[in-house]
């Protein structure tokens, strides 16, 4: 099932080699340990620099949105097989 969302989430990250790597996502009172960061892309939305992280664990794909202006994380896509 593929859902388009815009839910605020808590994300813990690792900082390695001057890169941010999402490590754990807390959404809807559940913790998801990220297994793989598949793609990272960034864009300018209405003057704000936004990073998108396409990540997955064994059962879910998540697209995470990081607003670099207010450091807010949101879950914008969820795909479950």
């Amino acid at each position: 099932m593929h859902q388009y969302l815009n839910d605020p989430i808590d994300v813990s990250v690792d900082f390695t080699n001057q890169r941010v790597r999402p490590h754990t996502v807390c959404w809807d009172n559940q913790m998801y340990k990220i297994k793989k960061v598949n793609l990272v892309h960034n864009t300018n939305e209405d003057g704000q620099h936004i990073f998108y992280f396409s990540v997955s664990d064994d059962a879910n794909f998540m697209k995470l949105r990081l607003n670099t202006q207010n450091l807010e994380w949101r879950l914008v896509e969820l795909y479950t097989d």
Binding site: K36, N38, L39, S54, S56, F61, K63, Y79, T80, D81
Partner: peptide
Amino acid sequence: SVEQQANPFL
């Protein structure tokens, strides 16, 4: 291909 790169379930 980009979508399949981003989402391994595809």
